[in-house]
């Protein structure tokens, strides 16, 4: 069949910039994009979505035996149930935490934070479990590592200030769900790498390559548009009225 395609592109503010034409000329192949999506769903652990996607997009099923375990581990970390998470990681492969002391320490510290959180949740509760856990599990590891030691000390100060609604930012960080999310992502990566897979989804690398290349191009004085929106529909929160700058990638 003829390959001549009619270019159909919705009007965008940057349409008339010569660079936009070059962007439009790039024709990403559908299988490549589907691959990006599938790779993300598998590596970041969305098994139901991945299954549905194979059906709807007519793709071959990607086998990944670790996905269920990874989802459970992520779930456990997100909930703050670090004990379960560590057990499950060790069930998969005890080497993962043995080989990555920083990751192991990060998990144990999360567990300590949860202990502190629970034993300071009401006045008069016993704080010895937290102290015992810190001295038996974390202190030996921190003794030989500056960074670990600092982290441990900072975490222990939570005992002094909690319960409080007005923590200094550094301490408040420790209680935010983002910390769990970050550790969970690191654990996921470590498991994937231990299985010989790529640690992070390709889309994450692509996203950063996009940021990097724009930065480089601007530094080199290339003639590119001032803003290059992706066309992500602005979510209600981000919407800024004109609906175009909301999704500009900012560094």
């Amino acid at each position: 069949m003829s390959s001549s395609t009619v270019s159909v592109s919705a009007p965008t503010p940057t349409q008339h910039h010569p660079f936009q034409r070059k962007v439009d000329e790039v024709k990403p192949s559908k299988p490549d994009i589907d691959f990006l999506v599938m790779d993300y769903l598998i590596s970041h652990g969305y098994p139901d979505t991945a299954m549905e996607f194979t059906k709807e997009a007519g793709l071959a099923l990607v086998e990944d035996e670790s996905i269920e375990a990874r989802v459970e581990i992520r779930h456990a970390i997100h909930k703050g149930d670090i004990d379960t998470a560590i057990n499950k990681i060790n069930d998969l492969d005890p080497q993962i935490l043995d080989k990555d002391p920083a990751l192991h320490f990060a998990l144990l510290r999360l567990q300590l934070i949860e202990l502190i959180r629970s034993c300071t949740s009401a006045p008069g509760l016993d704080i010895t479990p937290a102290i015992n856990f810190a001295s038996s599990q974390l202190a030996p590891r921190a003794a030989t590592n500056e960074v670990f030691l600092k982290d441990l000390e900072l975490t222990m100060t939570l005992l002094i200030f909690l319960p409080s609604t007005d923590l200094q930012p550094q301490l408040a960080e420790l209680l935010k769900p983002q910390l769990r999310q970050e550790v969970a992502a690191k654990v996921n990566e470590a498991i994937l790498i231990s299985l010989g897979a790529r640690g992070e989804a390709r889309i994450c690398a692509l996203y950063r390559a996009r940021l990097w290349s724009e930065k480089q191009a601007r530094e080199a004085g290339k003639d590119i548009p001032a803003v290059m929106p992706l066309g992500l529909e602005p979510s209600p929160v981000q919407s800024n009225g004109n609906g175009e700058a909301a999704d500009v990638m900012v560094q």
């Binding site: 159909v8 919705a10 290349s213 992706l230 999704d247």
Partner: peptide, 28 residues
């Protein structure tokens, strides 16, 4: 074509991401 007729962008943001990256890299 249907998307365009609905006044929506013909390519998804993810495709734009690939397109922009490729174009930027080739520029570099």
């Amino acid at each position: 074509a249907i998307l365009v007729s609905l006044g929506k962008s013909s390519s998804a943001a993810l495709e734009r991401l690939v397109q922009q990256t490729e174009a930027l890299v080739s520029e570099l």
